[in-house]
Design a protein around this nucleic acid. Structure first.
Length: 942
DNA sequence: AGCGTTACTTAGTATTATTACC
DNA sequence: GGTAATAATACTAAGTAACGCT
């Protein structure tokens, strides 16, 4: 539930603000600086508008026909190749950052006032960068030294600081606002609807317009259709029969398999007949092979990979027939601190039993983090600590009642020392430790699924810790307790040995449900949420579901035009529920918003589309909407977008009296209602599919700008640019690294050093041939950022380096001479050299003033011009790199690469442009997407 | 219908490994 | 060869959406 009162505004301040233009036509984009044309989907490297359509066929022509993002108007900016975009200078697209830093995750709402910035945040403030959509950052201090062609600062968004709350003293019930029923609307549009859920008068009375009449299935109903669950159950595992052949197995596993009557495994499979046959086959094969396999066991690896993607469709709810694994690995028991390490209370050292000492240590280890400054964190921690102390009090018979009197510093210092010690260990020691650890983990690394060896993801029981919720989580700081076997339920093959926990105790339960993919499961005590042990991302289970996710997104291509047409019409529906649904869908499609399920009271207050509140959306006539809210992980979504005028009008209605701050915008909409509707448009369609679809589609369009004849590096840069556009679309952010500023400045100096060299070359050229000043007027201008101060400093640095080098060289020479039994050079030789250096730099200083540089020996006009040209190229390259670095500093590319971009796009692109795949996918990603490599050739299209 | 539960995907950050740099 | 910068991986929180009970 959400509270009516929340301090939203205050909370919002720190995220970067993107301006995202929604309008389809470029021409609409009048405020280039602040608002852009709508195109979440595609902004080109040159941003905007290249709205291109998704296509279901590989035919390029048809590609053009489906515009993902396109709006209602028929003509939208879709273009097959965004020629127009390309014409745009990059700089224009570069986001302008309005201002400097903002923290990424909103820290503390309560503190939210203007001075927020001063507070220590958990994270460093991030500097916004602009991307395709420009992000406007709340203004704070710094003026970003952004490299790129600087864009003019965008005008501050008015709502940026604080979302306007327009409610005036309307009489509101304390709970959610309700809106008048449709029938009360004077004109259909003018009033807000009633609250979703019960209280509002249902729209029954209202005249139903055509779309409304559409029977919408509830999701339950729809589930009856083949797709949903039933289907899965009916179908048996087709593709599975061949698996048994899989390969070498580990001996232990084999034995267990042999012992286990596999045939029994089946119980609940409603799949009955089929699956049991399949199962028998498996068993048979296993038996047949077991003999020879055993012999091969030693070499263990190299089993050939199970190519599930070559096995035909796999549907179903039966996920396995045999499943063998070793359960979870518990962390080692707590080791008490040395006797001399004690926390203090009120100045006095106290001795804690291990149980409470461990908890104290969790907090002690965080002493240098911002958590210890957080009131909620402290309160939750201290409550749990006190509870622990009740049972395990200090030996001194002291009652601990105040956190402020606790001094954990001695513990902290101990941990620091331990860390140092560890760091100081020799390579061998470290290796030995690692080996011991690997050995311990070895049995847990793999499971045997239908006879195949499959890697596990997380096989470790989560160690105890203080819960670190993200954003303003009410439970942060709470003790997450140590797990025991009694907390854990295993899911494992029916007639297979039950593993023994690596610490004393017995499993809470053991089940044999072959319709699910988890191997172990427990309830975590902080939020009472389930945690699971699953197979790794590289496993066939994950691979199959990943692939079907992308296939579903590709299927959407076929339906999206119709869906867009429908929701565009429904934007004007007389039925408010439909109108809200259409409006929400518009946002989900164009802005890649998440669905926005309802959340509980004891969670951080974050939002998605369906749960947006009054204060999250601000209207700015004529058709601009400003979003400002915290999404998943409390990441701020702050964008300004030009929208279809009807959308603008709708939001105005949805926000009209009597709604006020704290009320839902879409009071008649729920995620399940929305998804039920989507399911009628396309089987299996849900809100999240739009994110996948738009991300992959955008990526595909963006890749079209790859330079065919560029270097590999240039091509990769184009790839990364495309990746970045997708990340921006999805609002994937990361904290700006704490050294960013420093390393960025360093890069800037490098560029200037290059410019300095170029300057010297220019002066030589002009000194050699004064006429060139006219002829090459382009070279006559001086470097804009090459001031005396820099040059002086730079020359000084060069000089110091030269001196160092000379000294080293001298020593080296002498060492060598001595080694060869010859006489070392006298120090005077060195002095002489140093003198020369000194003279040289003196000359440089003089040149700096006179701007005349004596040409080097053998210099000619041609040679100098060539050198200058080379230097320019180096400068340009360095600048591009800098710009890129700046633009990417707070954008996380990995998330979209892992979850949203169809890997076949990458594979196809790599093949088409002849770029080694390993430059694009890390080892784990390649292991995750073997199916993509198998099926995508250079011409593959999404 | 409403709401808690279950299963699984998506997400940012902390930690560790690798590479770049001196 | 040691250290700093960067990339990869590990970790676990936080979403989505279906399920299932009343």
């Amino acid at each position: 539930m959400r509270h009516i009162l929340r301090h939203w505004s205050s909370v919002l301040q720190r995220r970067p603000f993107f301006v995202l233009p929604l309008s389809p036509h470029r021409s609409l984009c009048r405020h280039a600086s602040t608002t852009k044309p709508l195109r979440p989907i595609m902004s080109g490297p040159s941003e905007p508008m290249a709205v291109v359509a998704p296509s279901f066929s590989s035919d390029p022509a048809s590609l053009a026909a489906h515009a993902p993002q396109v709006l209602s108007n028929g003509v939208n900016g879709r273009q097959e190749d965004s020629s127009s975009d390309e014409e745009m200078p990059l700089s224009q697209h570069t986001p302008k950052k309005i201002n400097g830093a903002n923290g990424k995750r909103i820290a503390n709402p309560s503190s939210s006032n203007s001075s927020e910035d001063d507070r220590p945040l958990t994270k460093k403030p991030r500097v916004s960068t602009g991307l395709a959509r420009k992000r406007i950052v709340e203004s704070d201090s710094e003026q970003e030294s952004s490299a790129g062609p600087s864009s003019p600062p965008a005008p501050p968004v008015k709502s940026a600081t604080k979302p306007p709350s327009r409610s005036n003293g309307a009489i509101k019930p304390k709970s959610k606002a309700r809106s008048p029923s449709d029938s009360e609307l004077s004109s259909e549009d003018e009033r807000p609807l009633a609250k979703k859920g019960s209280k509002a008068p249902k729209r029954s009375a209202s005249p139903v317009k055509k779309p409304a009449a559409k029977p919408r299935k509830s999701y339950k109903e729809s589930s009856g259709s083949e797709d949903e669950k039933p289907l899965a159950k009916t179908v048996a595992t087709k593709g599975r029969k061949s698996n048994g052949s899989a390969s070498a197995r580990v001996k232990k596993e084999e034995e267990s398999e042999d012992d286990a009557p596999l045939a029994k495994g089946k119980k609940r499979a409603s799949a009955g007949a089929d699956s049991s046959t399949a199962r028998k086959d498996v068993k048979k094969k296993v038996k047949e092979e077991s003999g020879k396999v055993k012999k091969e066991v030693k070499e263990e690896d190299d089993e050939e990979m199970y190519k599930w993607w070559e096995q035909g469709e796999n549907d179903g709810s039966v996920k396995w027939t045999t499943l063998v694994h070793n359960g979870v690995l518990f962390p080692p028991p707590y080791v008490p601190l040395p006797k001399d390490v004690k926390m203090k209370y009120d100045g006095q050292s106290i001795t804690l039993p291990p149980e409470s000492e461990e908890v104290a240590g969790f907090f002690g280890a965080m002493l240098e983090t911002d958590h210890v400054l957080d009131p909620v964190f402290k309160k939750n921690f201290f409550n749990d600590f006190k509870d622990m102390l009740k049972e395990f009090p200090p030996k001194e018979n002291i009652r601990i009642t105040s956190l402020e009197k606790c001094d954990f510093r001695p513990m902290y210092e101990h941990f620091e020392r331990e860390r140092e010690k560890k760091k100081a260990m020799t390579r061998e020691e470290k290796k030995a430790i690692k080996e011991a650890k690997d050995k311990l983990e070895e049995p847990y690394l793999y499971a045997l699924v239908d006879g195949r060896k499959e890697k596990l993801g997380n096989f470790r029981a989560e160690p105890p810790a203080l819960f670190r919720g993200r954003g303003e989580h009410p439970k942060k700081g709470t003790l997450k307790k140590r797990l025991r076997p009694e907390d854990i339920i295993l899911n494992i093959g029916k007639d297979v040995p039950i593993p023994k926990p690596n610490i004393p105790g017995n499993w809470k339960g053991v089940q044999h449900d072959n319709t699910v993919t988890w191997l172990a499961h427990w309830k975590e005590n902080v939020n009472n949420q389930a945690k699971y042990v699953f197979l790794a991302a590289s496993s066939s289970w994950k691979g199959q579901s990943d692939r079907s996710k992308f296939e579903k997104a590709r299927e959407l291509i076929k339906h999206v035009d119709k869906i867009r047409k429908d929701y565009t019409e429904d934007l004007k529906s007389k039925v408010m529920a439909d109108r809200q649904r259409a409006t929400a869908l518009y946002f989900i499609d164009r802005l890649a918003l998440r669905a926005g399920n309802e959340k509980g009271d004891d969670e951080a207050e974050t939002y998605g589309c369906c749960s947006l509140l009054f204060e999250h959306v601000t209207l700015s006539p004529p058709n601009t909407i400003i979003f400002d809210f915290l999404g998943k992980d409390s990441m701020r979504f702050h964008q300004e977008v030009d929208v279809d005028i009807q959308v603008f009008k709708n939001i105005k209605i949805f926000k009209a009296e009597p709604k006020k701050k704290g009320d839902d915008i879409f009071d008649r909409l729920t995620t399940s209602g929305l998804n039920a509707y989507l399911n009628t448009q396309m089987k299996g369609l849900t809100a999240k599919v739009f994110r996948t679809y738009n991300a992959s589609w955008t990526f595909q369009q963006q890749l079209k700008t790859t330079p065919k004849n560029g270097t590999v590096q240039e091509k990769i840069a184009a790839y990364n640019t495309a990746n970045r556009e997708v990340a921006i679309l999805c609002n994937h952010q990361k904290t700006v690294s704490k050294n960013f500023e420093q390393s960025f400045a360093k890069m800037g100096d490098k560029v200037r050093a290059l410019k300095y060299q170029r300057m010297k070359l220019r002066y030589q050229l002009f000194t050699l041939e004064p006429k060139m000043k006219k002829k090459r007027a382009d070279l006559a201008e001086s470097e804009s950022d090459m001031d005396d101060e820099f040059m002086e400093r730079h020359e000084e640095e060069l000089r110091e380096k030269a001196v160092e080098a000379a000294k080293k060289k001298f020593e080296k020479e002498n060492t060598k001479l001595v080694a060869e039994k010859e006489k070392a050079q006298p120090k005077s030789v060195l002095d002489e050299r140093l003198k020369e250096i000194k003279a040289e730099f003196k000359e440089l200083a003089k040149e700096r003033k006179t701007k005349k540089v004596e040409p080097k020996k053998g210099a000619t006009v041609e040679k100098l011009e060539e050198q200058i040209q080379k230097m320019e190229a180096r400068i340009a390259a360095a600048r591009v790199q800098m710009e890129d670095r700046d633009k990417t500093k707070d954008v996380a590319l990995g998330t979209s690469k892992i979850n949203y971009i169809d890997p076949r796009l990458t594979v196809a692109w790599a093949r088409k442009y002849d770029v080694p795949l390993e430059k694009l996918f890390s080892k784990t990603l390649r292991e995750k997407f073997p199916w993509a490599e198998a099926e995508a050739d250079a011409d593959w299209v999404f």
